[in-house]
Amino acid sequence: MHLAYPAVLSALLFCTGLYGVLARRNAILVLMSVELMLNAVNLNLVAFDVWLSRTAEETLHSGQALTLFTIAIAAAEIGIGLAIVLAVHRNRGTADIDKLRDTAERHDPDGTDHDALTAEQSGEAQKAEATA
């Protein structure tokens, strides 16, 4: 098989995931796009491991071992990421990453509405932290 097939497919999948990470607003959809990017990297690792195991007679199978590690770490990442998203949703009532802007520096002139909203949200967050 030509090596360009899996390499091109993984490049396209990676860029699809990149678009999803940049364009999506829901945090869980962003996590899905991150999974797409990780899978693109996995496909590259497997393809090059199969190529090198024949061409260079590499018997370490480092590509496939790294793929297994990536899959396990992705599973751990999705568990922790969803726990964080659920905690944020519990405290703020939203999983919309455009609205979670407490650490953003504000210079916009029409920020009164935003500031009031943020003050209310941070007040809620401080209450939650104070009671914790």
Binding site: L18, Y19, L22, A23, L29
Partner: peptide, 17 residues
């Protein structure tokens, strides 16, 4: 579901691809 910067995201993704 999509934020306002989807055209910028599309540009970046197509250029990277």
């Amino acid at each position: 579901a999509d934020s306002g910067n989807r055209w910028g995201a599309l540009t970046v993704a197509v250029a990277a691809a």
